[in-house]
Every structure is written in structure tokens, then in C-alpha cells.
Computed example of a mutant assay.
Amino acid sequence: MNNQKSLGIIALLISAFLWATASIFVKQLIEDIPPCFLLAARYVLAAVATIIIYAKRLKKIKKDMLIAGFWMGLFLFGQFITFTIGLQYTTTSRSSFLIASYIILLPLAYWIIRRKKPGVNDILVAVVCMIGICFILGGNLDGFQIGDLYCVACAADYAAYIVISAKYSRRYDGGLLNLIQITTTAILATLCSLLVQDYHISITPGQFGGLLYLAIGCSVIPFFLCIFGMKRVSTTTSGVLLSFECVFTSIMGILVLNEKMYWQFAIGGGIVVLAFILSEMPLMRMISKKSIRLRRL
């Protein structure tokens, strides 16, 4: 494994960790702040920060990069608006489980968007990873809730976002691409907030601090790291590494919220790690290629 690939893996794991912390903040803030306003405030702050950071490079943005960033921002908005609304009607653990189902949708999204059939290894990795996630969070599920529909929609958006981001991150400047997608999400979230008229609200200093952390610590930094990482590892591996978000969420629940440690977590975490190993094993890729050749005979 070369140094660049190692850096990409580390970047994606850090992204997963930072996004895991977002669930706690969003769940707390959503009790007092309407979802569209919360999303708008988060991404407007993030957009302002990225524009300041990349002000001297704005002239390098071309039409094709702008279009790519817009599509990424569109799916990003869809992902986070469904995630934010879904958390109003379900628990953090349940939301994490349902959204993590994106890993099983990833091969399908890759097929639809990239017009390329996923390999046998890609499908195997997705199934193994989802089994691990079921072990980690499956014990927290109960009857159907309306928030489930939003979380499933979020998972579908997330799968599409990963495929599109993996495609464009290899073509364009990661920093500018991040700026465009975050700004697009900020504009769409602001329009949504204005349309549903949920912007009449006062923000306390504590809530503003939470919004600022969501903007910088859970948006600007992780999305930059995510684009950086996707340039250096495969789409399948990116999906598996980002699924560690549910692992980190469970660990924080144990350490921060004093949730009970149970044996399913240890097994599930091990299976998710196994999925990552399978995604990188040359042997599995050889088996995948041989299987495809046999089917053609």
C-alpha cells in the first residue's frame, strides 16, 4: 500500500468520525431549531468559511467544475435534509442503522450512475459490511416510524453522492469542488427554509456554538478530507471506510452517553473491519475476475 493510498484511508476514517459526532449535535439542536433553518445555518456558515479560505483561487473555477460541484451539492442537500428531518422522528441509533444501509445500495448506484456493472467483489463487500452494521445497531430497532422513510431516502442519496463524488474528485481541485458543493447546499437549504417559513427563531450562544461546530467540524473539514480520500482509494473501499461512522457513533454512545456495551457490537465491528480487508485483498479481486470470465463462457 503506497503512502498516498494510506493518506486517503486515514482521511476517510477521520471524515467518518467527524460525521459521527454530528448526529449528537443535530439531535440536540433539532429540539429547538426547525430542520430547514438548522441545515441552512449550518451550510451558510460553512460556505462563508470555505469562500474565505479559497478566495484567492475562485478564478480557477470553470464551467465544468461548477456543474460537477452543483450535482454533488444537490445530492448532498437531499442527503442532509432527509437526515435532519428524520432525526425529529426517530432515535440516533435507529437513524444510523437505516442510513448505513447505503452500503448495500452502493453497487446499484454505481451501476445506474456510472453505467458499469459492479464486480462480484464489490457486491460481496457491501453484503458483508451490511451484516456487520446489522450486528452493531440491530438490537436498537423496534416498530416502524415515520422517520424511517426519511432515513432510507437519506441512504439512497448518500449512495449516489459517494459515486458522484468519487467520479468528480479525481478530475477537479478538491478544495474548490468542496466550496461549490457546500455553497450549493447552503443556497438550496436557505430557499427551503424561506419556502416553509421556519426561519423565525432566536439562537442562543450555546446553539450558535453547536452550529459553528457542525459547519466547520462536520462540514468543511470532513468533506474536504472525503474528497481528498476518494481520489486515492476505490469507490467500494470509500463506502466501507465511511460506514465506520456507525461504529464511531456506537463507541461515542458508550463513552459519552454511557450506553451499555453489548457483545453484538464487538462482532459487528469486527465484520465491518473484515469488509474493509476484503475490499483491498487482491485475491478477492482475482476471484471476482475469474467469476465474471466463467459467466461469459
Rank of each mutant, 00 (worst) to 15 (best):
Q4A: 14
A11W: 05
I14G: 01
A20C: 01
V26R: 00
K27D: 06
Q28W: 08
E31S: 13
I33G: 02
I33L: 07
I33A: 03
P35D: 10
C36L: 13
F37D: 02
V44A: 09
V44M: 09
T50Y: 08
I51K: 00
I51V: 09
I51E: 02
R57W: 02
K59H: 11
K63A: 15
D64F: 05
A68D: 12
M72Y: 09
G78D: 11
G78M: 10
G78L: 12
Q79E: 09
Q79A: 12
F83E: 07
I85F: 13
I85N: 03
Q88H: 13
Q88E: 12
S93Y: 11
S95R: 05
L106T: 14
Y110C: 00
R115T: 01
G119R: 09
V120R: 11
V120N: 05
N121T: 15
N121A: 15
N121G: 14
L124E: 10
A126P: 13
I136N: 03
I136V: 12
L137N: 14
G138M: 11
F144R: 04
F144D: 01
F144M: 06
C151R: 01
V152Q: 00
C154Y: 04
A155R: 03
A155Q: 02
A156N: 05
D157L: 10
Y158G: 06
A159T: 10
Y161F: 14
Y161R: 10
I162S: 10
I162C: 07
A166H: 11
S169W: 04
R170K: 14
R170E: 10
G175H: 00
N178L: 02
Q181T: 14
I182V: 15
A189L: 08
L195E: 07
D198S: 04
I201H: 13
S202P: 00
I203K: 01
I203P: 00
T204G: 10
T204R: 11
G206K: 06
G210L: 04
L211G: 09
L212R: 04
L212A: 11
G217E: 06
C218R: 06
S219T: 13
F224L: 11
L225D: 04
L225F: 08
C226V: 07
C226S: 12
F228I: 08
F228N: 03
T236M: 04
T236R: 02
S238L: 01
S238E: 07
G239L: 07
F244Y: 07
S250D: 10
M252H: 07
G253M: 08
I254K: 01
I254W: 01
L255F: 14
V256Q: 08
E259P: 04
Y262E: 02
Q264E: 03
Q264D: 03
F265D: 01
A266K: 00
G268V: 05
V272S: 13
A275I: 10
F276P: 00
M284S: 14
M284V: 15
R285H: 08
R285L: 06
I287Q: 08
K289F: 09
K290A: 15
R293G: 00
R296I: 00
